[in-house]
Amino acid sequence: MSSEGEGAFHIVDVSLITSGSRRAMLRTRDDVRIEAVYDPAPASVTDTAVVVAHGFTGSADRPAVRRAARAFTARGAAVVTFSFRGHGGSGGLSTVGDREVLDLSAAVRWARELGHARVATVGFSMGGSVVLRHAALDRDTDGRADAVAAVSAPARWYYRGTAPMRRLHWVVTRPAGRLVGRYGFRTRIERRPWDPVPLSPVEAVPLIAPTPLLIVHGDRDPYFPLDHPRMLAGAGDAELWLERGMGHAENAADDELLARIGDWLTRAPGPSAPEPPRA
């Protein structure tokens, strides 16, 4: 696997879902078809479009992703959701956070094609690692993010310190696990290991400034303990919200948190949420 890609982004086809909403097939720089959905803002409150990057085994049509999209449009933003390669109706194979940067870049460029001068990105879990790496690597005018929020993101690769992460590594690295991923989770996974190993999330953070950066993490996350968000926030200029009682990623983000994230993405960053007490 490699993060390098060639070729130009373009839209394969676009269809109307509802009045103003569109579903498109985008093509990435490395020629992978990516399904994407655009939901316009209900009123011209802001020119911001929020691009939502889901977690591993998710997709643009998963209920938690659609709920996040509704929460962000309710805060006045247009929203682009999409399925990473190997997920949902997109083509290709999942590289578990490496070449997915190209998928996000295609979605950001589509948002700008639709007329949005300001595009913010928010990612959950694997998607959180992707928005961080994208903000560090894609500084092009059309592909850049103007604000970035990473929710439940890992700080470093190959983490196996929790039981859920050991199970995930089995799914990704073993033939039987990839079969479970394909038929149990509808996620098609690349069998080849990373070569070279991509820039890690914590290595990406110092390269993001001056783009505003928000790190959000639950104090009951079963995948990544609190040293991950603290490491990310400590690596650069970032705002850190540690959420009391929250679990992992989009499924654990309640409506109140999504509304706060939406406000942060569409307006000036607000104050940090208080850090929970240490055990």
Rank of each mutant, 00 (worst) to 15 (best):
I215F: 13
G123M: 08
W194R: 11
A155S: 15
I208D: 04
A249W: 06
I208K: 07
W157A: 06
E113R: 15
G20E: 01
V119Q: 03
H10V: 07
Y183V: 13
E256T: 15
R112Q: 04
A238H: 01
V131A: 06
L104R: 06
L132Y: 00
I261H: 06
E113G: 09
G143L: 08
A43V: 08
S105N: 13
V202P: 01
D142Q: 15
P225G: 15
A71P: 07
D219R: 09
M246E: 04
W157N: 03
D30L: 10
H116K: 10
A78Y: 00
T141M: 14
V216M: 02
W110L: 09
A153Q: 07
S59T: 05
V180F: 15
D254T: 02
T48M: 12
A149W: 01
S83L: 13
M126S: 01
D142C: 12
S2K: 14
A106R: 04
A77I: 01
M25K: 14
L242I: 03
T162L: 06
V172W: 09
D255M: 11
V119Y: 03
T46K: 07
G97T: 06
G91E: 04
F124T: 02
G245C: 10
R182H: 12
G88Q: 02
S3N: 14
G89S: 11
G7M: 09
A155M: 11
S19M: 14
E250K: 09
R174F: 07
E190L: 14
A163I: 12
R186D: 10
H228G: 00
L132A: 07
E6F: 15
P225N: 12
T95G: 05
W241K: 00
L257Y: 03
S125Q: 06
V130N: 06
D61Y: 14
D138I: 11
E100T: 05
A279V: 10
R99G: 09
Y223P: 00
R260M: 10
D263H: 11
P42T: 00
F82S: 04
P210M: 09
E6Y: 13
E243H: 06
V151K: 00
D263W: 09
L16P: 08
A252E: 03
D263Y: 09
T187N: 00
L132K: 06
T18F: 15
S129W: 12
R174Y: 08
E190S: 13
L257V: 01
S125M: 04
